[in-house]
């Protein structure tokens, strides 16, 4: 099964063409990854087409699309999600959303760890998004959005042997795995539903924060 995998939930823009065999791990045929990107909207679609070209496939050959649903800074996150949704609609291809942290954890736990781990990414505003996983990369807690110091306190109640993700260093734990979600991890998280041919549910972004907006208070007077 040929799967297009996208993620724009972090500062990295990722697009990959992945083969999902009937059993075993996904195999990345081609990928385009831009780290430290600010222009998610400009980079993503060219990345998709370049990855397809390198893999020698056309968009219409894709059997399914997998996209990271965050958590992540909202503006960038939406680029990947709406791209996946529109591509799926235009091609008549199912679109599966997966938690972006799960994709990082699944790659980080490719070989079983000796204990739990956490994934930590940048939430800006001096906070991080984080989620906790078991030794095989299955989520136990989160995702949450909190200050790094609060996360460190929480680790007392969630003893972990390692951390992954672009902000993993804030935990003080050994850093493992990819800093951002990769095509193999994204497809691995969705592998069971992809193979079963399960209809994907609606795509729901993991914002974790309400929009910044305040209801207006009493009117300010203009006259003295």
């Amino acid at each position: 099964m040929l799967v297009l995998a996208l993620d724009t939930s972090t500062s990295t823009v990722t697009a990959g063409v992945v083969d999902l065999p009937e059993s075993g791990a996904p195999v990345v045929r081609a990928q385009r990854v831009s780290a430290g990107a600010r222009k998610h909207g400009e980079l993503l679609m060219p990345h998709v087409l370049e990855a397809c070209a390198e893999a020698g496939v056309a968009l219409r050959d894709v059997d399914a699309i997998v996209t990271g649903t965050g958590p992540g800074p909202f503006t960038g996150l939406r680029v990947g999600m709406v791209t996946a949704a529109a591509l799926g609609d235009a091609l008549g291809t199912p679109v599966h959303g997966v938690c972006s942290h799960d994709a990082i954890a699944r790659e980080a736990c490719a070989t079983r760890l000796s204990g739990n781990m956490v994934v930590v990414t940048d939430a800006r505003r001096r906070e991080v998004y984080w989620a906790g996983y078991d030794a095989e990369g299955y989520r136990i807690t989160g995702p949450h959005v909190e200050a790094p110091a609060v996360l460190v306190e929480r680790l007392a109640g969630f003893p972990s042997v390692a951390a992954a993700g672009e902000q993993a260093a804030v935990t003080g734990l050994p850093v493992i795995g990819p800093a951002t979600p990769g095509p193999a991890g994204l497809v691995a998280v969705a592998a069971d539903v992809l193979r079963a041919g399960t209809d994907p549910g609606p795509l729901r972004p993991l914002y974790l924060r309400r929009p910044d907006a305040v209801e207006p208070g009493a009117r300010k007077r203009v006259s003295a």
Partner: peptide, 11 residues
């Protein structure tokens, strides 16, 4: 813009 690109590329 992202949606338009996806539709244009897919079609």
């Amino acid at each position: 813009v992202a949606a338009a690109k996806a539709y244009a590329a897919a079609w």
